[in-house]
Design a protein around this nucleic acid. Structure first.
Lengths: 250, 250
DNA sequence: ACAAAAGTGTTCTCCATACACCCATGT
DNA sequence: ACATGGGTGTATGGAGAACACTTTTGT
């Protein structure tokens, strides 16, 4: 229970009467969170989308969403929404931007905070996903979505690209152990362009944030590709020591 | 009147009854906008802050803020707040992030979208500013602010730095005509470090986005420094032609 | 003459880019 | 033997960083 909570309870008494004077004439809004959930596999970069089996807009495609509750903040609401529909906790998430156009949701006056999430597409609760009638859709094949959700997706992709250039955020889209060819494919998918294999590997190796597990993945070639894991500790200590370089520059 | 508006009116009829079923059990929130307003003069980078002469938290320092109205979106609300307290329109503004901690504003459950703005400190409505009891405060001397406003300021500074490295957003903080020494001082203030004069000028000149007006400003030296203006047209055409370089790299 | 700010060029280093061949293995 | 994907090194160009002196003019 955070300190703020007690403070709020304490101060509330003081404000209880006053607050009516200050705030009561202001308009009320529903506050939503919508999650742009990225995943990645050999086919490419994907989004987890809902073919809605509930109202409103039943039958149409949308992002995962939900409403903010009085006793939580937006980060918590976004985590809850993600947990509900994928069964996952501790997924990389980041607030993207808040959308607020009048009449965007015709059902009510809603202000919607978009969050983007990066997750390992091989590791989620299939039952939860299918109960929401959700599916992984290739980024290039995203259908028209309800409200301003397509706009949110566009924003999220831009943010993902910027993040991926500045920090090694891409690892969140891969399993804990991954091969360099798959890491390169991921970056090619994020940036939508081809990358020279030698330059890519040189860059990655020069950063010294990968650990070669010694194991090999033989699923895509006869020779087999080494499995690496991300050395988060090393990366964090680099950050503390003022590492300020671009992680990846196209 | 945007297309969406008609659409909303049309669809509303359909939803009027239904919406009650979908949304009525969701919590209501007040939605605020808070503006982090940057200015710059020879003393350094400054923020426009309020010493509140109204409740709540009368007597304390805060950002400029206001509540979202039912008939506007967040961008419009932020513009309105800025217009009310500085008399300015068409100021560079950008949505920063939405803050939503429970108990942050003890007066009510408020979700607050922070905006950051860049303006020419020499050009604003002094009466409006003083009627709000507002003042320009050096960034290094920002006092404790109410709620989570200090956190917003920190975020805004980070965003400003990132923006300034990627695009020539700094010009919004200067008068229409400015000298290279003052432009350099601005960047030194934004990044909080010294910059080599020759390298700075080389970089700026190589971009070809400044117009030398031929006029000189003699206010800071006997020799006088040339006044330049930002060639927005040229910059836009560069963008269209796929200019993708960093504007400024420390 | 001198103080005070404006203005200017060169060298070095490092990083991004372009580019072609060998390796391991299953068939 | 060969097809398939994994893995490696070198040469070049361009941009950032370091660095010192001349110009102008008011006093």
């Amino acid at each position: 229970m955070p300190y703020n909570y007690f403070f709020a309870c304490f101060v509330k008494k003081f404000y209880e009467v006053e607050s009516i004077r200050y705030y009561e004439q202001e308009a009320d809004f529903k506050v939503a969170v919508d999650c742009i959930i990225f995943g990645f596999d050999e086919e490419g970069l994907k989004l987890l989308l809902l073919k809605r089996n509930f109202e409103p807009c039943k039958g149409e495609w949308s992002l995962m969403g939900g409403f903010l509750r009085a006793d939580e903040n937006l980060d918590q609401a976004a985590e809850r929404v993600l947990r509900d529909c994928t069964g996952l906790e501790k997924v990389y998430m980041e607030q993207l931007m808040t959308f607020s156009d009048v009449g965007c949701d015709p059902g009510a006056r809603v202000v919607s905070a978009a969050y983007f999430a990066l997750m390992d597409i091989r590791n989620y609760d299939k039952e939860a996903v299918s109960s929401y009638n959700a599916a992984w859709v290739l980024l290039e094949q995203v259908p028209p979505l309800i409200f301003d959700h397509n706009q949110m997706v566009t924003k999220a992709l831009g943010r993902l690209r910027r993040r991926a250039t500045n920090c090694p955020v891409g690892f969140n889209l891969l399993p804990q152990e991954f091969t360099l060819p798959s890491l390169q494919m991921l970056y090619e998918a994020i940036f939508g362009c081809e990358i020279d294999k030698r330059n890519f590997r040189k860059k990655i190796h020069s950063m010294n944030i990968l650990i070669n597990t010694g194991k090999k993945d033989y699923s895509t070639s006869k020779k087999g590709a080494y499995l690496y894991s991300f050395d988060e500790e090393k990366y964090n200590s680099m950050l503390e020591n003022g590492y300020n370089q671009n992680f990846f520059n196209i």
